[in-house]
Design a binder for these strands. Structure first.
Length: 550
RNA sequence: GUUUCGGUAGCUCAGUUGGAUAGAGCAACGGCCUUCUAAGCCGUCGGUCGGGGGUUCGAAUCCCUCCCGGAAUGCCA
């Protein structure tokens, strides 16, 4: 029996007592909590307070009655205290808690693997930046959060497809082609102006130079629009993939918007919407009746000039995702797109499925600060600090950890001067250092001829609050995974990592690990081995490395 | 105006399915390396949880209201 099972048993026992006492009410849920203060036990229950009204008795009395009916031994409880105003505090026998060390060492990386999503297939779409320039630091948040979320969901037992929607059709790409053409011609000293909505970033100039090297002046004489378009998209997309890969973000599916046109999916979806009478014509445009499905107003899907809005292929795209039989579609979008959710959900309702199959996670924007001022990021203006720059200058680990730390819906400030210079302030090193220290201890122990052996230990030599605290946190790893996965909150995992590292550092400062007592040393090494397993696994879930030396 | 996300320590942020004395990192201050990694440990300082009402044994957390900031409110994407 592990600790999670034990807490369930304690809850059951409380429920049983309530029944015997004649108080039981199934609408009042029995659940244990973990008190912040160690003196309040390993677990605590507020159940007596919640039954006070129903039982018409003082909570403290109810608590006493419940406790009287509990069998301490079979529940591995050392003591049970009743405290004002009616909390019940449970102290588990230490040797039971230590059992988790053996479990972890036996299971290795499998420890914490859950099977929550047995019948679920999730599709998670994130980043999906247009291939019209370099990824900038603002995009990194989406990449880091989305990827971490996927890894955590997989650990929790969900089948996950990571997907990137490539906007390789439409107006933005048109502007890219024109921008590239203009830059190319400028290289021949032609007085060509950039298009009004053009992309002014330096990467477009570099690309134009590359084209010039390859084809020389060919497109001064012949029409090059299609060439610039496809060349630009494929080069920029390749760059984008590379940047993401270096950021340790890999996608399973790169879904091309153009393919929706090539395979007539957009046209078919449009026909379907018309047939079902979900559309009408007004002012020369075709509108979709999204307001009938919860949107604040109807939306144009075919403009009066005959072209589509962004929404049109996106409906077709989501229809396609639905047809691929996922049980859940998660879109991770930037905060500037939140007004888009209602129309998308409405459209999904129309193409046949319940809109709640789509879940949209909104990622608030990052405000980048440099030299004490806000830096406005914009691809069009070309003013941007690229992800590539940051990877090269600071490294992947600090950035990924930093973004994973923040809850998705918080508006955050990123001080670049701080991020670039004072990298030691990033808590990632605190966690990584814990792991490096452990590996150093193994090396030291080995030198003295003591090796960690993966056998069941009795842990009769382990004592002290710091030790118990560390073991306790190790036992909570599966809870942390579940919480982070079901609430879509990757930052719960960095909170957990920080707690674990802190417990370790504190334990380390308090306890001499390698001593002349071989049995005690081996027991401590077993604890450290369990700690490093969890540290490395949890770090891997947010895409951060775990160096053995620092 | 409407929708939406925020407002918690000097700064950046946790904590928000109601729980016990509101936390962490950084900054500031004071201790700890002749024994396992000082990227560390131990301690001190620091708060009208935006304001005001309400709900109850109990509210940062739930409800109402007001104030402040970001974002959205396109036949842009």
């Amino acid at each position: 029996m592990n600790i999670q099972e034990l807490t369930v048993n304690i809850e059951k026992a409380i429920k049983h007592s309530l029944k015997e006492l004649g108080y039981y009410d199934e609408s009042i849920e029995v659940s244990l909590e973990q008190p912040k203060d160690k003196s309040h036990g390993d677990y605590a229950s507020n159940i007596a307070m919640r039954y006070a009204k129903k039982a018409r008795k003082a909570p403290i009395k109810i608590a006493e009655e419940i406790v009287e009916k509990l069998d301490k031994e079979s529940l591995y409880l050392e003591t049970i205290n009743v405290v004002n105003p009616g909390f019940i505090n449970f102290f588990i026998v230490p040797s039971f808690i230590f059992g988790v060390i053996n479990d972890i060492n036996k299971q290795g990386k499998q420890y914490g693997q859950l099977s929550l999503g047995k019948n679920d297939r999730y599709n998670i779409e994130f980043v999906s930046v247009n291939p019209t320039g370099s990824l900038h630091i603002g995009h990194a948040r989406g990449a880091a959060s989305g990827d971490s979320m996927c890894r955590i969901l997989q650990k929790a037992g969900y089948e996950v497809t990571k997907e990137y929607y490539v906007n390789d059709a439409g107006n933005q790409i048109h502007n890219l082609a024109l921008s590239l053409e203009a830059r190319y011609k400028q290289l021949f000293d032609l007085d060509v102006l950039m298009p009004e909505d053009g992309y002014n970033g330096p990467e477009i100039i570099k690309l134009a130079e590359k084209i010039k090297r390859e084809v020389n002046d060919r497109y001064l004489h012949e029409e090059g629009y299609h060439f610039f378009k496809s060349y630009g998209v494929s080069e920029l997309l390749a760059q984008l993939k590379q940047d993401l890969a270096d950021f340790r973000v890999e996608f399973d599916v790169w879904f091309s918007e153009q393919s929706l046109y090539d395979e007539q999916i957009v046209q078919k979806t449009l026909d379907y919407l018309k047939e079902q009478n979900y559309t009408y014509e007004q002012d020369g445009a075709i509108w979709l009746k999204t307001s009938e499905y919860g949107d604040e107003k109807d939306r144009v899907i075919v403009k009066s000039d005959g072209t589509y809005t962004y929404l049109t292929p996106d409906i077709a795209y989501h229809k396609n995702k639905l047809d691929r039989n996922y049980t859940k579609l998660i879109d991770i979008l930037g905060g500037d797109h939140h007004g888009y959710i209602d129309r998308l959900k409405a459209a999904i309702e129309m193409v046949g499925k319940q809109s709640n199959i789509l879940e949209v996670e909104i990622l608030q924007m990052v405000k980048v600060i440099q030299n004490g001022e806000e830096v406005k990021m914009s691809k069009r203006s070309g003013r941007a600090i690229t992800l590539r720059d940051i990877i090269d200058e600071v490294g992947v680990d600090p950035i990924r950890y930093f973004f994973a730390m923040r809850s998705l819906n918080t508006h955050m400030d990123l001080d670049l001067d701080l991020a670039l210079k004072q990298t030691n302030e990033n808590p990632v090193y605190y966690v990584q250092y814990a792991n490096a220290r452990i590996h150093s201890l193994f090396t030291q122990a080995e030198k003295k001829g003591i090796n960690f052996t993966n056998e069941d230990h009795k842990f009769t030599h382990l004592t002290g609050d710091k030790t118990i605290q560390l073991v306790h946190i190790l036992s909570q790893y599966p809870d942390a995974i579940e919480l982070a996965a079901t609430n879509r909150t990757p930052h719960k995992l960095t909170n957990y990592l920080n707690q674990l590292a802190s417990a370790f550092h504190s334990f380390y400062g308090d306890t001499q690990i390698i001593t002349d007592d071989i049995v005690a040393t081996k027991e401590k090494l077993a604890l450290l081995n369990a700690t490093t397993i969890v540290l490395e696994d949890a770090l891997s879930l947010i895409g951060v490395s775990a160096p053995k030396k620092m």
